[in-house]
Amino acid sequence: MMMPPIPWDIPGPFADMAVMASRLRASLVIIDPNDNVVYASQDKKRLYPFIDFSAPLTFEAMLRSSWKHGADNGIISPPDFEAQLADAQNARRSPRLEFTRRFPTELICAHIRLDNGWNAQLRVEPDRAGLRQYFSRDIPTFGLLEAIRQRETAEQCAAALDCLAFGIAVLGPDRRIKHKNTAMADLISRSDGLLVDEHGRLSALHDDDTAELSRLVALASLGRLLAPTAATSIRAAAGRSHIVSVSRGGDSLGSAVVLVAPASLDVAAVSDVLHRDFKLTPAEAELAAMIGNGFTNDDAAKELGKAPGTGREQVKSILKKLDVGALANRGQTGLARWVAVLGAITGAARFRGKS
């Protein structure tokens, strides 16, 4: 949906709000000091199709149209329109007003007034905007703009976490997942040692692994771990094991952070990075990725159908091309470590934005 042009003369804070409303797919109107509607978002027009936003419009006329449409459709309307209008106009004199509406759908609303007389009214559908978790259905509203800022901060943190190949999840004391990054979602989708049970709790494939995970998460959530972090292992597929770290979820009690180091690298993904960004040949990139995955040089060469001597020559070429710091002097061990770190910081980003 195309965002309507923003008038050049509206105050800067409201121009920023218009951009934010577009991201949230939210309803926004901006009203000048003379009570004229100078901007209406596409979602305002979607929610209120019975209002003609193409014609000159005042805030008062917009309210009257909304109340009349509600009355025509069986919605309880104000018993005294004029008194209700006077109350609404008086409430708008406050610097900030927050309220909810149930017509035409569930809306959490914020009305902002600047000292120069400009007003803006933001109306957000909590599910559509991804804000449901910040509000209770039993509480009318609580800090809409604060909730939006928290959501945007959480999205920025999630984008950072999605660049890691480590699976990361924030859990409640009962192991219910509050947030997970892309790598954790991938592990769960493949049932690679971990799954989500019917109650939304992070669990292991084996009951004894789940019991140990449950114990550590409960202790971390209560701040009772003997050290800042506790580690364990969880059995994965093909006889492999993931290393798992559990720690307290921030300064407040009630959550735990679980970090899972994958049992193996994604050889194809790491090979692509080595070929694209570090200019290794496809054959060198595949060999280096397998060494980073725990293979010896000779075993990797054998797995790839190469003679041991060919593999050794390729490793020499790889070390020369990747000659950063003392890597070349550390041989295969240094290469394995370097590739493993590269895989850890690039592996999961490939999943972002894909279904």
Rank of each mutant, 00 (worst) to 15 (best):
T310V: 12
R25W: 04
E106V: 07
P4A: 05
R175P: 03
P7Y: 11
I139G: 02
A169Q: 00
R46I: 10
L122Q: 03
A185E: 12
E60T: 15
I148Q: 05
R201S: 11
I51G: 05
S221P: 01
N329G: 15
L194N: 01
Y134P: 02
K306A: 08
L225Y: 10
S77V: 06
P78C: 03
V19R: 13
A288D: 11
M3G: 09
L85M: 15
D32R: 01
L319P: 01
I10M: 09
S255T: 14
L107K: 01
E82V: 04
L131F: 07
A26H: 02
A307K: 13
Q121H: 08
D207S: 11
D35V: 00
E198N: 14
R224D: 09
A159T: 14
S241R: 00
M184N: 01
H179R: 06
L319Q: 05
K354H: 13
S317K: 14
P228S: 07
W8A: 06
L144C: 09
P173W: 12
L319V: 10
V258S: 02
R92T: 04
A159W: 03
H275D: 13
I51P: 02
A283F: 05
L322V: 09
S355D: 12
T229M: 09
A110Y: 00
A91T: 10
E106F: 07
F99C: 04
I148L: 05
V339W: 09
K68H: 10
P13Q: 11
F14G: 03
L225G: 07
R102G: 12
T232L: 02
L97I: 11
K316H: 07
E146M: 12
I148H: 04
N297P: 04
D209L: 00
A211E: 08
S65M: 10
V257P: 00
C157T: 08
F295C: 02
L97H: 08
A261E: 13
K320N: 15
L259I: 14
K354Y: 10
T229W: 02
D9N: 14
A158S: 13
A328T: 12
R276V: 04
K316F: 05
L342Q: 10
P126I: 07
D52M: 08
P33A: 06
P282S: 10
L47K: 02
Q133F: 13
W67A: 03
P126E: 10
G130P: 07
P33L: 05
S221N: 05
P56M: 06
A263D: 03
C163I: 00
L213H: 00
G294F: 04
S203P: 01
S252Q: 15
L194T: 01
P95W: 09
I10T: 04
L213D: 01
A328Q: 12
D32H: 06
V260T: 03
A237I: 01
S203E: 15
L274T: 07
R92V: 06
L322D: 12
I148D: 03
F14V: 04
K302R: 15
R93P: 01
L57D: 14
A285L: 05
C157E: 10
A160C: 09
G74N: 07
P126W: 10
L144V: 14
L259F: 06
L226A: 15
N329F: 13
